[in-house]
Amino acid sequence: MTDNILSLEAILASAELAQSADELAAHSDYKAGFAAVIGRPNVGKSTIMNELLGQKLSITSHKPQTTRHRIHGIHTTDTHQIVYVDTPGMHLGGQKSINDYMNRTANSAFADVDVILFVVEAGRWSSEDQAVAKKLQGSPTPVVVLVNKIDNFKNKEDLFPYLQKVAANVEFTTLIPISAYKRNGLDLVEKEVLKYLPNQAKLFPEEYITDRSTRFLASEIIREKLMRSLGEEVPYGATVEIEQLKFNEDQNRWEVNALILVERPGQKQIVIGNKGSLIKEMGIQARKDLTTLLDGRVHLELWVKIKENWSDDARALASLGYDDNYSS
């Protein structure tokens, strides 16, 4: 009997080894890894990531510092899985706690990635671009420079002096001119990224498009409408907190309650608008995207609340999800 048991154990162990060998062989040609998308504010980082993913994940607007968090966008195929890391724009100035948080978040993307995509805007080189380039000096991680918005140049030869300037200021392995808006050059970006990814199994299940929660994505959708609807002052003093996100089976719909937090009474009135017109329009636009996100009917309620100095209060920031070790 003992011999039989030992034989059975040996057979099971052999089967497990064979399975492990089969899995290893199956992944020997599979590539998976991380690509950080960095740069100063408003160069199109989030748009680039959305286009590379083939779907909208990161929110966008024409205002700088729209992206405030690190967001992983996961692109999975039969041959590879690329985890794009979208980051807040690295910026100079801004003395509030939220500015420190965003810069820390952007800097953290340098660690444990396989390739860095440094995005710059064609024809423009600022002190913030220079600051990012300085951080990249001596980086052991390969750097690919993406020169975005080349569609702004009718004559591409006019780009050459700018490309020479970038080459003189940045240590990089490859430079790729692109237009995220027109999707020009993005296929080259993916091919370049794949050169630096290790052969290994998937890092996330293939059905994942991000590691962020639905609650987080819902809050970002609402904040995007806020950023797009308001003037220059209010968006930077406003954030969104989801109070409730649940499915009501009796009503066959999702119920989402969200707070728009501002820092001053005057900002509250601006967000609400004349007779509630602005917040109503934001709700209509947000509901459309939430319906897509949640794949069902949505009842959305928005409220505006004053939370003084939240953007310069470390504890308030942490409670609102501005945390270096996010779990939302």
Rank of each mutant, 00 (worst) to 15 (best):
G138H: 10
L12K: 13
Q267W: 04
V119W: 05
L226H: 00
R287C: 07
A21K: 09
M282Q: 12
G231R: 09
L92M: 13
E190K: 11
V271T: 08
G93P: 02
A286R: 02
K45Y: 10
N325P: 01
A180N: 04
T105F: 05
T76F: 07
P235Y: 01
L24K: 15
L197M: 07
S7M: 09
D250C: 01
G123S: 11
A316L: 12
D78Y: 06
G73M: 02
P265V: 12
S327T: 10
V234L: 03
A131L: 04
D323W: 05
K280R: 15
F118W: 12
K191G: 12
K96A: 13
L175Q: 15
I260Q: 03
K165L: 15
Q55I: 05
M49G: 01
E263N: 08
R104E: 15
K307W: 01
P41R: 05
K268D: 00
K154T: 13
S127V: 13
V144M: 11
T87E: 07
H72R: 14
Y84A: 03
E121L: 02
D312W: 02
M90S: 06
I82N: 03
E192V: 03
Q244G: 00
K63Y: 10
E157A: 15
E224H: 06
N107Q: 14
A238V: 05
I272W: 00
G123Q: 09
S328D: 13
H27K: 11
K56F: 04
L53V: 08
D313K: 10
S127K: 15
I221E: 03
P205T: 06
D289H: 12
R68T: 01
D129L: 08
L290W: 06
D129Y: 03
L302M: 00
L197Q: 06
W125Y: 13
E308K: 14
E9W: 10
E263S: 09
A26V: 04
D295P: 00
L163F: 14
N4C: 01
S327K: 10
L259S: 12
N169G: 04
G44V: 07
V189M: 10
E243N: 15
K149C: 04
A167I: 03
T141N: 07
A32R: 03
S20A: 13
I59K: 05
Q244R: 15
V234W: 01
P205N: 12
V120A: 08
F216W: 13
M227K: 02
I270S: 06
E249W: 04
I279W: 00
R104S: 14
L159A: 08
S139L: 06
A111N: 14
T87W: 01
L290V: 09
T87C: 08
E157S: 15
N184K: 10
E301F: 08
T239K: 06
L175A: 14
H72W: 07
L159S: 08
G266M: 03
Q95L: 11
T174M: 11
L117K: 02
G276C: 10
V193W: 00
H62L: 06
V143N: 04
T2M: 13
L136K: 07
T87R: 07
N148W: 11
N103R: 12
V193A: 03
L261M: 13
R297K: 15
A133S: 14
